[in-house]
Nucleic acid binder design. Sequence first.
DNA 1: CTCAAAAAATGAACGCGTTCAATATTTTTT
DNA 2: AAAAAATATTGAACGCGTTCATTTTTTGAG
Lengths: 207, 207
Amino acid sequence: MSGLRAQKKADKNRRILEAATTLFRKVGYDSARIEDIAEMAGVSVGTFYNYFKNKGDMLMATVSMEVEEVLAAGDAIIAREHEDVATALSELIGKYYDHSLTYLSKEMWRTAMSLSIAQPETPFSQRYTALDHRLSKQVCDLIRALQNRGVVRKGVDCDATGELIFNNVNMMFIEFVKDEEMDVDGLKASVARQNAPLALLMSGDAA
Amino acid sequence: MSGLRAQKKADKNRRILEAATTLFRKVGYDSARIEDIAEMAGVSVGTFYNYFKNKGDMLMATVSMEVEEVLAAGDAIIAREHEDVATALSELIGKYYDHSLTYLSKEMWRTAMSLSIAQPETPFSQRYTALDHRLSKQVCDLIRALQNRGVVRKGVDCDATGELIFNNVNMMFIEFVKDEEMDVDGLKASVARQNAPLALLMSGDAA
DNA sequence: CTCAAAAAATGAACGCGTTCAATATTTTTT
DNA sequence: AAAAAATATTGAACGCGTTCATTTTTTGAG
């Protein structure tokens, strides 16, 4: 008979999460006040804090969902064959960028990144950083796969180049979310240009 | 006789700035309350806001000083001759990193970066971004200089590779300031490893 | 020197995220 | 079913950055 409590708990959790995401979408993260979220969910402010450690933690659920999905899509891309390095990179990176605004707005990304830098010791930041590392590793994996298939020259340090490329991808994404004018296509074009020389130089034989 | 007002103004400006940097160093940025800064400077809270737009703006003076100095040092490095690409990059990047904690603590850097991402439309963020771009351009300039001297292979897109390398430098610096354990030497070693393959591939002839 | 206008200083008040002691509800024990 | 223990809810209060109406100081004209 302890069902009642668990039932109510799950229900409130869902209602709060729903209210928060709705409000974040409608008025943006900063303007969505805890008081408003609590009211929309039909609970008090105090109760909100029983369910979530703080406002920022509400973002992590969303960020996490976003990145998990893109990681899965990335694995599928790595499994396929690729003509050349530049194309393979564009495909993987393009998937990252295309997917990025599915659940999160630029403002929400900015908030998440900002929090993760400002308070590195928090669980929020640590989870965010872990997701970043998995993405970085995925780029390394792609390059290693290309090397095994002879698309990338032997002797090239896959992890070193993978990290280099991913850090550029990530930094450019920061520029992207900082600039409301910039669109995904412009972002992809810039990164492709930045990758081009390295992609060419690390290609096996040809060129 | 309007000297008195200007005199007092300059004096207060200096006193507030001094108090702020002293407190930032002593207790950290977050724990340094405006009230404390004002009190230490011998003015009221309201007066603080007459002299500085907000707390974050106090950081920009420091960040700016930091980056201006490192840019000047960077120009001197570019002017010199270099054996090979990897060494030249290590020297410039090493200078960036070595200098980075002269005026700012890791916590202050985190705050500055965090602010610049969270509120891109503010003057603070825009000034920060402009400094970043000048650093990026300097790395491009180094590579172009190396190309003109025959150290870098002809045909390599200097701006593309420069941006790629700088964005990695910058992203790794974020990792560095997020991790209180990490030291400058470890940071330099990681970046050198990440740069190595590209540096080798873009080298003229030899290898 | 006087006084009105301009400039600067002030601190109480506000907004919002977060905390916590008091209260209410559910579960367990008897 | 009543009492005790465990758990959850609540909203007033707090901290701190920021604002703004009011007061004080400085200035230059008469």
